[in-house]
Write a protein that binds this DNA or RNA. Structure first.
Lengths: 119, 119
DNA sequence: CATATACATCGATGATCGTCAATGGGTTCG
DNA sequence: CGAACCCATTGACGATCATCGATGTATATG
């Protein structure tokens, strides 16, 4: 259910009485909303969201060789999405031998769980 | 701070011992992650995020004529972003006379506040 | 009815994005 | 050393996106 618009309690406006109201200031600074928008954009792709969810679900870091077969895309595409998630600070990576391991950061895990109720 | 990878407690892997692990199942269904990704994408643009924030901050619906001057973009662009936020269910609109009023839905408000700590 | 205003829609344009084949760097194994 | 393997990077291509001028649709005013 959505908020009941206060509008219903107001008389219809005439052109002669201007619509202009005083606006409450935004809570987010331009800088903060840029940062936040960036993180939401990183998570705002179905493939990347599923990746983050999968990684957040694991008790241990996961090898790319195990991650890749979970998705229909090819290896370079997987690698590309992992990089975007990493740039946004939602996942982290470490190389061990010939394998690369990925895991969700605390930031990534808590963003995901904050947002899951909206799925 | 990010999670300490369990990796550090494991010996380096050899090629002969395969990396493959059993993966915990993802928590989000494909369908749910599609829906959620869509909402995050709608909020994952700096202009739209600032719009949502501004609207969520107001005690009353806001006229487009008051909203538009808050942003550097032109009127058709503002209208376009408002439509995307509306399609995602984050804001709602109502026309009254010659003016269009917008307000943040409950969904939009709670998504925004769930996500604000990550700004 | 004619004019003016508010704002949604359309069409075009340049930028960004998702995708993949090809390639390269780094590691392991024989 | 040379072959095999993992995976990141590059370059290209089509799709989607943000943006804006032009236009359309209501509504209000005189």
């Amino acid at each position: 259910m959505t908020a009941i618009p206060v509008l219903d309690r107001l008389p219809p406006r005439r052109k002669s009485e201007p619509c202009c109201a005083s606006l409450a200031a935004p809570a987010l600074s331009a800088q903060k909303s840029d940062l936040l928008a960036n993180r939401l954009k990183a998570a705002g792709d179905p493939t990347r969201l599923r990746m983050l969810d999968l990684l957040a679900q694991q008790p241990e870091p996961i090898c790319v060789c195990d991650l890749t077969p979970q998705f229909p895309q090819n290896q370079p595409t997987i690698s590309h999405h992992l990089k975007l998630l990493r740039d946004a600070g939602l996942i982290e990576t470490e190389k061990r031998g010939i394998w690369s391991y990925y895991w969700a950061t605390d930031e990534g895990k808590s963003l995901l769980s904050a947002v899951k109720p909206f799925a």
